[in-house]
Simulated scan of single mutants.
Amino acid sequence: MRSDLLRRTAGSSPPATRTLFLPSLLLVFHLISSTSGDTPTAYDELLEYDFPVGLLPKGVTGYELNKNTGEFKAFLRETCSFKIQGYDIKYKSTISGVIERGRLKNLKGINVKILVVWLNIVEVSRHGDQIDFSVGIMSAGFGIGNFLESPQCGCGFDCNDLVLGDSSY
């Protein structure tokens, strides 16, 4: 009797639960694979727009980017400051602006101290191997090699092997 039952089951069409199981399983695998590590970081996005990763300090916790308009926001845990090439630099916990290939404009949240005054860096542009920073009334250019690594909050590139949390960007 059992062999008849097995034969009928094996020869008949699959039950509805089995038919729904496979598509549901495929949907779950798709959702898992699309959310696991495939999302580019803010540093990856900089590279996509032809900028070096060192324009952002280590420790970016997240970002938003509208690929149609180029509007972006990058988030740090807290305000971040350090000194690079004699300049005091300060990043607020949220940096925003518009990104396009070779140009960051309408920047908010990045400041540089010139003499005794803090000024907003409003634009960054790349011209070949040169990165230009503009505060509106004046600009300064630096070689791209200065920005191949991300500086650390608190010490920039002069950390003298201090361990200040995650060293990956």
Rank of each mutant, 00 (worst) to 15 (best):
S33V: 13
P40A: 06
D50Y: 12
F72R: 02
Q85G: 12
S3R: 15
F21R: 04
G54Q: 02
F21H: 04
G59T: 01
F29G: 06
N68G: 10
T41L: 09
G156Q: 05
L22K: 05
T69V: 07
V60K: 00
Q152R: 06
E45M: 12
G109C: 11
E123L: 10
P40E: 08
S34K: 03
G165H: 03
E48Q: 15
G11A: 10
N111M: 14
R77F: 14
G156I: 11
D88S: 06
S3H: 10
Y49G: 02
N111W: 11
S93I: 06
A140N: 03
S125Y: 07
Y43R: 02
Y91L: 04
Q152L: 05
K108A: 12
D161I: 08
G59I: 03
Y49V: 08
L119G: 00
V163I: 15
V122Q: 06
I144E: 03
L26W: 06
Q130D: 09
S24W: 05
V60Y: 03
L22N: 09
K105R: 15
L104R: 00
V116T: 14
L148K: 11
L47D: 14
P40R: 05
L20K: 10
C159H: 05
L22H: 09
E48N: 09
K83E: 11
D166T: 13
K113R: 14
L162F: 15
N68A: 13
R7T: 15
L56W: 01
V53P: 05
T94H: 03
I99N: 01
I84W: 09
V124E: 00
F142N: 04
L27P: 05
T61R: 11
G145Q: 11
P15M: 07
Y87D: 04
G102P: 02
L27V: 09
G145R: 08
E48G: 13
H30I: 10
L162T: 14
L148Y: 10
S139E: 01
N68L: 15
